[in-house]
Design a protein around this nucleic acid. Sequence first.
DNA 1: CTGTTAGCGCTTTCAC
DNA 2: GTGAAAGCGCTAACAG
Lengths: 340, 340
Amino acid sequence: MPTIKDVAKEAGVSIATVSYVLNNKTHLVGKDTRQEVLDAIKRVGYTPNITARNLKASQTRLIGYAWHRVPNDETNPLLDGFAYFLAQAAEAVNYHLLTFTHADDDPIPVYNEMIRTQRVDGFVLSGTVADDARIRFLTNEGFPFVSFGRSNPGWAFNWVDTDGKVGVQTAVEYLISLGHQRIAMVAWPEESVTGNYRLYGYIEAMQAAGLPVHDGYLQRGENEETAGANALNQWLQLPNDIRPTAAIAITDIVAIGLMREAERQGVQIPTDFSVIGFDDAPMSQYVHPALTTLRQAIPQTGQALMTILEALLNKTEPKEAHILITPRLILRETCAPPLR
Amino acid sequence: MPTIKDVAKEAGVSIATVSYVLNNKTHLVGKDTRQEVLDAIKRVGYTPNITARNLKASQTRLIGYAWHRVPNDETNPLLDGFAYFLAQAAEAVNYHLLTFTHADDDPIPVYNEMIRTQRVDGFVLSGTVADDARIRFLTNEGFPFVSFGRSNPGWAFNWVDTDGKVGVQTAVEYLISLGHQRIAMVAWPEESVTGNYRLYGYIEAMQAAGLPVHDGYLQRGENEETAGANALNQWLQLPNDIRPTAAIAITDIVAIGLMREAERQGVQIPTDFSVIGFDDAPMSQYVHPALTTLRQAIPQTGQALMTILEALLNKTEPKEAHILITPRLILRETCAPPLR
DNA sequence: CTGTTAGCGCTTTCAC
DNA sequence: GTGAAAGCGCTAACAG
């Protein structure tokens, strides 16, 4: 590979001059000299070595992004797609994504190592939880990062998140517009920050419409099919006049679990029962009936994250430290007016 | 961030000595000096700057991996999971993954840029096709790379691939063991290298069992649901005595398309018709009935790729230039003995 | 054994 | 306008 020296020799100038040309310091180099250098660059086929540039500038132009944990060969389709759009957004501002993995239970050493070796200029986090150790650590280190997802309300850090509350509100309002009055929800465990925002959306929308949230309407469970199945079975045991006719599931996985249980129990969806998921996972269009769900705006999320992070990396205050992105309700086949 | 100089000062030695300690040149430094340096390193909290090391060594310890194209917000679940395991395999040998994106139709400029700027030490390709422009380009450049997937048989390059032929053979044999005799297949267009290997598996297994491949048994289409739907409809038009009782679909997507069409046509799966997919996409366990399919061994594939690439990067001959990895048949609910 | 020193390839001050 | 030279942080050849 040719270096700046080769170009200098070829053009008969000093390496400083070549550097000026490369960095467009037009006021520092004569028009003809400039052209000569440009020609020489072309002739020798030169491109600046990025490692040398980075060393000089004490940067890497690399953003670290850790893959979410993968339990048993499973992947999280939402976040898989996210990484792609994040990479694209990073490239638009001349950064690249360095993806790495870490032990499920203890991510900190890897983050620490990346900071100490100066492998990356900043991080993007995803899958954040309450009391997130990574957020605490990075804040403490004063190392630049943004998070896809909120954490403890008291913590001061930059984030972008899907507006789960508004999303679920929209979904509930849609069910109401269809004629439903007895609407239930499967939420996540109480500790889940993300889950609670979505839950608030449900509660508020019900209250706003003056609809009661009967005992048992709110069920909770992990992000598994069984959560949906269990919830449905609870609801089926409620007396006829308060038994829900529709439900919001906190994710598509949960919604699908509910649907499969409905099939087992002879409950027809959407005729007997309507359901709306959250995420628009790839499989959701393949289940039968195809799942009506809230789609997170992943491409925009990636861009918003990079906008904030770029500001941080330039040591300027980001315009907005927190950005909420509204999900879109994708109408498919799991909702219908309630049986009269 | 402390540098090697700070450590040297702290320990009262030269930077060379510190460097020797860092690089475990034990024969070059006294036992007590070594300990003193080690202590100083700990005291000042020093970790070598990787950019400087890389500049010195003319390397990056970065592997470039391009995301497959994403048409309309869709992602390829198989490859999404692949990136994770590839990253893990890379980290095991002290590399990191630099993920990047490129225009669908013209990936070469991005690869070229990465090489010229010396951003990465090598590449891993996926989604390779016949006459793959990337393979041609990288071979031409003499730049280290490995491919997940084969391309033109005549081309000399290193690859790892799922053994589609053996996989489909296994699937066909399984159907035969269930009692099926009239087995059909939906393949990809003739140009698809990967598709043809899978197809050979079908042909050979049928021949080996002395089973006829009747006219119309072999259908082709793109990787879409419609391909499966169309194929089924063709088969349904065949006369009763040669109408297939089971089929191999070249991917899960195609299998799912077939299943949905079967439902529309009143064909019960697996009672009336058995089907086997390929890939074990995440959605495949959620469709109803859950899809029996061939699962690619993605973690091993990532490791195999890195083993080869690491050899290339060390300028040694890889032990095996080509590695075939056998997929595993995952039995679920879409296969049953044929109706008598 | 330990230190001095010359780079790796680039940017940027400071003279001229 | 142009160039000499210092230096980013590190490794390693060479002296001693």
